[in-house]
Structures are given as C-alpha cells and as structure tokens.
Measured scan of single mutants.
Amino acid sequence: GATAVSEWTEYKTADGKTYYYNNRTLESTFEKPQELK
C-alpha cells in the first residue's frame, strides 16, 4: 500500500516562528498538525 505523505510543510515567519501550511486544503496553522504528531 501507498504511504500517506503529509500535506503539511513547515515554514518560518520573518520573526522566526514556525508554522505549518497544508498545500491541499490551503490551511495554515501555528499548532503542529495531528498528522505530524
């Protein structure tokens, strides 16, 4: 079976905060997504 690849990509803001962006739902969040835990 195919492994589900996380759609979340980790980015940093200009002031160094980490956030996560989902390229399928176009959602962004500062909290670590469930799929990455």
Rank of each mutant, 00 (worst) to 15 (best):
E35Q: 08
K32G: 03
T25E: 01
Y21T: 06
S6I: 09
L26G: 15
T29D: 02
E27Y: 03
Q34V: 12
K37R: 13
L26T: 08
E10D: 03
F30G: 04
K32H: 06
K12F: 08
K37W: 14
S6T: 10
A2K: 12
N22F: 01
A14Y: 03
K12Y: 09
E35H: 08
P33S: 02
K17V: 12
A14D: 09
E35P: 05
Y19L: 09
K17R: 14
Y19N: 03
E10Q: 06
T13S: 07
T18H: 06
Q34I: 14
F30H: 06
E35S: 10
E10Y: 03
L26I: 02
E35W: 06
G16R: 01
P33C: 03
V5N: 11
E27W: 01
T29E: 02
K12G: 03
E31Y: 05
T13N: 09
T13Y: 03
V5P: 11
V5I: 13
E10K: 04
Y20T: 00
Y21F: 14
S28Y: 15
T18A: 06
K12M: 11
R24Y: 12
V5T: 12
E7F: 06
Y19P: 01
S6Q: 11
G16D: 04
Y11T: 06
R24L: 14
Y11E: 08
Y20P: 02
K17G: 04
E35R: 04
T18Q: 04
Y19D: 02
V5W: 12
T13I: 03
T9S: 11
N23Y: 09
S6D: 10
E35M: 05
L26V: 03
K12P: 02
Y20A: 00
W8T: 01
Y20K: 00
L36M: 10
E31R: 04
W8H: 00
W8N: 00
T18S: 11
Y21Q: 08
Y11H: 15
Y20G: 00
T29G: 03
N22V: 00
N23T: 15
D15A: 06
E35I: 06
S28Q: 11
T29M: 05
D15H: 04
N22R: 00
K37M: 15
K17L: 11
W8I: 01
L36V: 09
K32L: 10
P33V: 03
P33D: 02
A4I: 12
Y11D: 03
A14R: 07
L36T: 08
L26Y: 12
R24G: 05
W8Q: 00
T3M: 14
R24F: 13
D15W: 04
T18L: 09
Y21K: 08
S6L: 09
Y21R: 06
S28M: 15
T13P: 01
A2V: 14
N23V: 11
Y11I: 13
E7R: 04
A14P: 12
S28L: 15
K12T: 13
T13A: 06
D15S: 07
E10L: 04
T29W: 04
D15T: 06
T9K: 09
E7C: 07
S6R: 09
Q34A: 14
T18V: 11
A14K: 10
F30A: 06
T3F: 09
F30P: 05
E27A: 05
E35V: 06
L26P: 01
G1L: 13
G16V: 00
A4H: 14
T9R: 08
W8M: 00
E27H: 04
T25I: 01
N23A: 11
A2Q: 13
W8D: 01
G1Q: 13
E7N: 07
Q34H: 11
D15Q: 04
W8S: 01
T13R: 03
G16W: 00
T29S: 09
E7K: 03
E10H: 02
R24D: 06
G1M: 13
N23G: 06
S28H: 11
N23M: 11
N22A: 00
T9D: 06
F30V: 08
W8G: 01
R24A: 10
E7P: 07
L36A: 08
K37V: 15
G1S: 15
E10N: 01
Y21L: 07
S28P: 03
Y11C: 15
S6K: 09
R24M: 12
T13Q: 04
K37Q: 15
S6P: 11
K37A: 15
A14I: 11
T29K: 05
G16P: 00
Q34K: 12
E35A: 13
K17E: 11
A2Y: 08
K12I: 12
T3A: 13
Y11A: 08
Y19Q: 05
K32A: 08
P33L: 02
E7M: 04
D15R: 03
T25L: 03
V5D: 11
Y21E: 08
P33R: 01
T9I: 14
T13F: 03
E27P: 00
V5F: 12
G16K: 01
L36R: 07
K17M: 08
T29F: 05
P33M: 02
T9L: 09
T29I: 07
A4L: 12
Q34R: 10
D15M: 03
E27I: 07
G1H: 15
K12S: 07
E31G: 03
